[in-house]
């Protein structure tokens, strides 16, 4: 699992690459400062190369979404695959996020 961050003015794009399984999510959640700071502004989560997400990965998404809600930021989820969309649907996450493409 790899996350590539790019910044353009106030918008941060996090390109998620690989499998966001439990061990990957645990590693990321220990080092979330940059993502959390971005979530307080505008954070695009580019999921075009995200192959898999477990509930621990969803927890990261939700944590960022809560930060955005409390700090006046914005999260946009971009390009989720049909299988990951299915997980979002099953868990009610489709209603919690702005999803593009």
């Amino acid at each position: 699992m790899e996350i590539k961050l790019t910044q353009q003015e106030n918008i941060t794009t996090a390109h998620l690459i690989g499998r966001l399984d439990t061990p990957a999510s645990q590693e990321i959640s220990q080092n979330m400062d940059e993502l959390q700071a971005a979530a307080a502004k505008t954070l695009i989560l580019d999921c075009s190369e995200l192959e898999y997400i477990s509930s621990s990965g969803l927890r990261i998404f939700l944590t960022l979404r809560k930060t955005a809600a409390s700090k006046g930021g914005k999260i946009i989820i971009k390009s989720i695959s049909p299988v990951i969309r299915q997980v979002f649907m099953m868990t009610g996450f489709l209603n919690l996020f702005e999803i593009q493409g």
Binding site: S56, L58, R59, K66, A69, V87, M90, T91
Partner: peptide, 13 residues
Amino acid sequence: VEDRPIGGLGIYM
């Protein structure tokens, strides 16, 4: 979003 607990989804799935 505000009321949604962070955990509890695993068993649900």
